[in-house]
Write a protein that binds this DNA or RNA. Sequence first.
DNA 1: TTGTGTGAAGCGCTTCACAGCC
DNA 2: GGCTGTGAAGCGCTTCACACAA
Lengths: 255, 255
Amino acid sequence: MATGRTHRPATRSRGIPEATVARLPLYLRALTALSERSVPTVSSEELAAAAGVNSAKLRKDFSYLGSYGTRGVGYDVEYLVYQISRELGLTQDWPVVIVGIGNLGAALANYGGFASRGFRVAALIDADPGMAGKPVAGIPVQHTDELEKIIRDDGVSIGVIATPAGAAQQVCDRLVAAGVTSILNFAPTVLNVPEGVDVRKVDLSIELQILAFHEQRKAGEEAAADGVAPPVAARRQQPSTDQGPDGDVPAVMPA
Amino acid sequence: MATGRTHRPATRSRGIPEATVARLPLYLRALTALSERSVPTVSSEELAAAAGVNSAKLRKDFSYLGSYGTRGVGYDVEYLVYQISRELGLTQDWPVVIVGIGNLGAALANYGGFASRGFRVAALIDADPGMAGKPVAGIPVQHTDELEKIIRDDGVSIGVIATPAGAAQQVCDRLVAAGVTSILNFAPTVLNVPEGVDVRKVDLSIELQILAFHEQRKAGEEAAADGVAPPVAARRQQPSTDQGPDGDVPAVMPA
DNA sequence: TTGTGTGAAGCGCTTCACAGCC
DNA sequence: GGCTGTGAAGCGCTTCACACAA
């Protein structure tokens, strides 16, 4: 799951399994939608369907947070929204810097989901001097030279890397040196970071490759079970993209 | 991991664990880099470091593919590149449609990692008539009306949804009806799809929320272990973002 | 009666440790 | 001697099934 705490025997973050943490945002999203529709309470079954998981898993997940439900009734939507928000640390506001303002960086800057979830874009940073001052999503782009100052002045602890792969490690090093301890990496590279720094990565190409694997397998199956019409019946919901536990990595190998 | 095959007792895709499949693209990326540097062979230890996993896991992963290494020596880089590519289905070319050409869609269209990995952008599609004909990444944007025709004519089986959340399910339905069986979803919604259709999702906001959780926990620890300097010592590598196994989801709940 | 909360069982993945081959 | 390949053990997550509370 790309989270720090390496070289420690599978510590669970404050007793909450990592898999559960990864699903909390899903529940929160579903609950927020219910809240906007002024739904007062929801059962584990309903909420699970809305979040795309099964209800046993959801109840188990919530049991790690505490007993926030009422037997025979369900969960109070507003209360749960608050509890999960608090658990995720979204009751405070997190300043975030985005480095690399290409198409992807711009998309991230414009992404509304951040502001509404406790994240604030503190700065947009790009290495191209020609970009400096140009507003993206209403925020003027600043040059890489300003990076350290911005991070220190705004107390930024979360950085997003949307640069080309070649620049990612260097940017990462500067972010970490300046005090960033959580990084969301969109560059297709393995980042080396010191202990205590969390890295999550999103790789568009990898997701497609995984799909291709399954697509290929489907094609093979089709050929095998020749003539059998593919049953496109029961509508089902997409299972959640779980972020499993990760392993340790001892040594390094600079790009 | 957001892969189909629901309502089946944890079938492993052709004997290869899902967790392994999710790491194959990582290995492939590392191997490609080695190949470009004309490195002939590599040990499990070296390759594991480059991919950000540990060597035992890597050897186990490769053992599912076959015995492609040489004891006492290591793995032949070119040979492994080929074997993994074949396993992932990247030796054929996959036409892909991207729906929703905002900043994110444009970023995806411009993303070089696709073409180099067996994916071909067959079409860019947007609901805005004003976008029609406008070239993005050298490809003219087409209107949503053309969607079905494009998918059928080009035999597209993989679709990317980069629309706002509100439009995602509708787009999804049309993609599936037209023949798409794998979907990469960037919209922050749970998609309902028929059996046999794979959905993987990428949610930027969710990734940040997971980081916020750990960030908050760090802050708490700091306060607890007051005065103890944070040890920023051993450089380590980021563990891989594993995609764990998923669960079943029986029923539905339309947005 | 309904639906939560949870021990216990089941399952898959990771890690260990070493046999086996170059 | 070095490194792969792999049974076996360990571990965490998921699922089951039911006690218990409203």
